[in-house]
Structure formats: C-alpha cells, structure tokens
C-alpha cells in the first residue's frame, strides 16, 4: 500500500502524517487526529455533517482526499472556541435552541461560519440558501436560521460571548 506524506495545519497546530491517497479528509481528522466533532452523515456529499474549512472555505470533508488538502489550513468545529469562549455561532445555536440531536450541528456551524465570513449581516433568505448543503432531520431549520441571525447580531454588537460552561458546573 503506497503512502504519501502530507503537511496540514489543523486548528492552528501543524501536523505531518503519511496517508494512503484514498484516505478521505474526514477519516484523517476523526481516526488519525481523533477530532470526532466532524461527523460522517450520508457519506455521499449531500448532508454536510462533515463540513470543515480548508483555507477558510467550507468543504465536505467526505468528498476530499486528505492528500488534496496537503499544505492547507483546516479548521474543524473543535477549532472555533477561543480561549475558553464559545464562538458566536456556538452561542447562537445554544441560545436559540438550534439543535435537537446535534448530529448535523458541527457541519451547520462550519457552513454558517463561511457565510458570516463573507456576509456578516445575512438575511433569512441568504442564510437558508447558504445552508442548502446541510441537512437537519430534527429542527425543521427554523431555529437554526435564528441561531445564525443571533450570531450575526452578536458579532455586530461586538459582544463578547459567555465563557464555556465546564462539564462539572
């Protein structure tokens, strides 16, 4: 089995690894790096549960070989919270009850983060269009859209988010 070396920066940490060319990025993140926040849903490029950022753009990591991301910066859901504070979108999903089972949530948040990066004040229609590649089978999407608006408004206010609540609180 041939293996090729790749260099990635994942959530700010440089990593070097030898991978099989056919290893998908999502399996590299989950199985090799142990970053299991990125989920495998449909595994057919439809549901968006595996969405991560590669060089700042949301991609479906089930439809990308790890070797294609060689040299790139990858951000996963684990990389969004900063210094113990949740990302505005994580806050938004919490505050607006944007999830039920939570399976689609990491992908939803990564897609929404890509949207907010180039459209900081999106309309409801823009949010729905931007989340076309993410399926949620629980919420009916309504609270997800509200969660993204919540984050956009919080960013506009420049409000600092609440500290992460520790598991034993």
């Amino acid at each position: 089995m041939n293996r090729v070396p790749i260099n990635l920066n994942v959530n700010g940490k440089a990593t070097r690894s030898d991978v099989e060319p056919r290893q998908l990025l999502v399996h590299f993140l989950r199985d090799t790096l142990g970053l299991t926040g990125t989920h495998v849903g449909c595994d057919t490029s439809q549901c968006g549960a595996c969405t991560v950022h590669v060089d700042g753009e949301a991609v479906k990591s089930c439809t990308l070989f790890a070797v294609q991301a060689d040299g790139a910066s990858v951000t996963t859901i684990e990389g969004l919270a900063h210094e113990g504070r949740l990302h505005a979108l994580q806050e938004g999903f919490w505050e607006m009850h944007g999830l039920q089972c939570g399976f689609c949530t990491p992908g939803m948040i990564m897609s929404a983060a890509d949207l907010l990066a180039h459209e900081p004040d999106p309309s409801e229609e823009q949010i729905r269009h931007a989340l076309e590649g993410n399926f949620c089978r629980c919420t009916g999407y309504h609270n997800i859209v509200r969660a993204v608006r919540h984050a956009a408004e919080a960013n506009a206010r420049g409000a600092s988010s609440e500290p992460v609540v520790a598991a034993d609180d």
Partner: peptide
C-alpha cells in the same frame, strides 16, 4: 453558478 449544488460543492 449559485444554482449548482450547494456552497460547499461550489467551493471545490
């Protein structure tokens, strides 16, 4: 272009 796939597909 914006009618093709979804944003993640269009990014790649």
């Amino acid at each position: 272009a914006p009618l093709i796939g979804d944003p993640m597909v269009r990014n790649r």
